[in-house]
């Protein structure tokens, strides 16, 4: 099993969910996070004092999939999250040697 983590623009979340649904992947966990990368932030001014806001709101999504589904899942995220401008986000794939469904106590590989 592999874990796919993707950090995407919040306004792209609906598109990404649609994209994942199309490849039959509709289980995921979402985090509201703040991110910082090459994307420039924006300025906010409160009573004449300027603040650079460079930690921007992002959505992180995680899903765990069998090894043979990794490529299409990653492909779907890339396609649906891309706008072509800086700040589109990143995808990280890592190993998950053990995954268990709580309801049945069984290994996820057997369940899926």
């Amino acid at each position: 099993m592999k874990k796919i983590e993707a950090i995407v623009q919040p306004f792209k979340l609906d598109d990404v969910r649609e994209g994942l649904k199309r490849v039959g992947m509709d289980g995921m966990t979402l985090f509201d996070v703040r991110g910082y990368g090459r994307q420039r932030g924006h300025k906010e001014i409160y009573r004449g004092h300027e603040y650079e806001v460079d930690l921007l709101p992002k959505v992180k999504l995680e899903c765990v999939v069998p090894d043979d589904r990794v490529d299409e899942t990653v492909g779907a995220i890339i396609e649906s999250a891309r706008t072509g401008s800086i700040g589109d986000g990143k995808i990280i794939v890592s190993d998950v040697p053990e995954a268990i469904q709580i309801r049945s106590g069984q290994s996820l590989e057997d369940v899926l």
């Binding site: 099993m1 874990k3 765990v64 890592s94 190993d95 998950v96 040697p97 053990e98 995954a99 268990i100 469904q101 709580i102 309801r103 106590g105 996820l108």
Partner: peptide, 23 residues
């Protein structure tokens, strides 16, 4: 630890969740 989580989090219904272990 995994057993403790699985046992205590289980209701037997859909939506109970998952546990992942990684290196």
């Amino acid at each position: 630890i995994v057993n403790a989580i699985v046992e205590s989090a289980r209701t037997g219904k859909i939506g109970d969740g998952k546990v992942f272990v990684s290196d």
